[in-house]
Simulated assay, not measured.
Amino acid sequence: HTGHVEIRGNKQFGNREGQQPMTPGITTVATLAKSAGYHTGMIGKWGLGDPHTKGNPSNHGFDYFYGYTDQVLAHNYYPEYLWRNGEKQFLKNEVQYLDSTAWHAGLGSRSTGRVEYSHDLFIDDAVTYISRHQQEPFLLYLPLTIPHDNGEQVDSMVFEVPSQGIYANKNWSKKEKDYAASVTRMDEGIGKIINHLQRKELSNNTIIFFTSDNGPMRAHPTTTFFNSNGPLRGGKRDLYEGGIRVPMIVQWSGKIQGGSTSDHLAAFWDVLPTVGDLCGMELSRPTDGISFLPTLIGEGVQTQHGHLYWEFHESAGAQALRQGDWKMVKNNVKSNADPPLELYNLSNDIAEENNLAADLPEKIAALEHLLENSRTVSQLFPLLNVDN
């Protein structure tokens, strides 16, 4: 999350009311596309407010919504219900909600009767959505939950998947087989959507973005077994490269050369201005994002970031800043008013093993000045070292 947005992390909002609702009026990819005449749909997980709050997806540009509106409820792939356009749709699953005194306040659950699998429902609904709106411009946001685990399940069942498929006979643990099967099921679902676009003759007029919101779980058995992070340090909930460096795959037949790659430095906040360029819409106010459309199509001049900034508000909190190959990290910023600084040169230390902070005080001072001026004070998401 950048330092200039309203919502900078997951913050539970009451009991069974999802996370902190986003205030209406904030520009989103959906409001931008909708203003350009696109029908806008979202299928999957929304974590910015339940339907009866101001965070209802319909208040933020989405004409259609189907899915979860609570991050914790979304851990269960066989949920009691899903939301469709503000109405609960109960499923055939039998759900056991867990101890209300636990961290999840009773939202954590596991299902004893598993009939309807949310991921498959999402893929099928995405195909239906495309068919329904094939005659008009549309934007479909598909934030899938798979392969996120259900941490409230018994340990051997945390990766909920109907079948181990091609991995069933592997000489692996059950958890490893289930995780691999989850990733493959996601891949098959995306393939189903791409094949549907081809059958509808929409491939040449549709751009597809595929990416992840974070790296793999830190020190998790499956991360270790599959070497998911390669040489990168850390993982999910870290601001080291293992937590924030993720791939993005983009397909646009006839516009983007197949098999091409780019090392252009971009971040999620660049998606908004990129969608604006694709829709022919200018943003009404400046943002931290820079359109990477020139990089995608190989035309025009690509503007580069002067630096990138992140902050993370779970656990002890963290901040990070990257300028070129230089990367500065601050950990424990919610509990320590003067946390130690870490400095790495990613050009020769992608694993962030050699902390150069003590050797380069002038570089540290320059980056810290940038970091301090890369955010606004937030009452919802305060950091001890700057907001108190």
Rank of each mutant, 00 (worst) to 15 (best):
R233T: 03
S212Y: 03
P231L: 10
I207P: 00
T222D: 08
T224H: 13
P231Y: 13
G235E: 03
H220F: 11
S228G: 07
R233W: 03
I207F: 10
S228T: 06
P216L: 11
F225M: 09
R233I: 02
N227M: 10
P221G: 07
F209N: 13
P231T: 11
P216D: 06
R237M: 06
G242P: 05
T223W: 05
F225H: 12
S212T: 13
L232T: 07
R233Q: 15
G215W: 02
P216A: 11
R245A: 12
E241P: 06
S212Q: 08
A219L: 12
G243D: 03
I207L: 11
I208R: 06
D238P: 09
R237S: 15
A219F: 02
N227G: 09
G242I: 12
T223N: 00
I244S: 03
D238F: 08
G243I: 12
T222G: 04
D213H: 00
T224N: 04
A219N: 14
I207H: 01
V246S: 03
R218P: 00
G243F: 06
N214Q: 14
L239K: 06
F210S: 03
F209H: 01
F226A: 01
L232V: 07
D238H: 15
I244A: 07
I207V: 15
P216V: 02
F209W: 14
S212N: 05
F225D: 02
M217C: 03
G234H: 11
A219H: 06
G230L: 15
R237F: 13
S212E: 07
N214R: 09
T206V: 15
M217I: 00
G230M: 06
K236D: 15
F209E: 04
G235A: 05
T222F: 07
L232D: 04
G243T: 01
H220N: 14
G243W: 00
N229L: 01
T223Q: 05
T211C: 05
P216H: 10
T223S: 15
I207R: 07
F226E: 11
T222S: 10
G234E: 08
I208L: 14
L239A: 09
F225I: 04
E241R: 09
P216N: 11
R218S: 04
T224A: 11
P231A: 11
T206H: 09
F210V: 03
N214P: 01
E241C: 12
A219R: 10
A219V: 14
S212L: 03
F226I: 02
L232Q: 10
P221E: 07
F225Q: 04
F210M: 06
G242T: 08
R245W: 06
L239D: 07
N229P: 00
R237G: 07
I207T: 10
R245H: 15
G215M: 06
I244F: 07
L239Q: 12
R245E: 11
V246N: 08
S212G: 05
I244H: 03
G235P: 11
R245P: 02
F225C: 10
L239V: 08
P221H: 04
P221T: 07
F210W: 12
D238V: 05
P221M: 04
R237K: 08
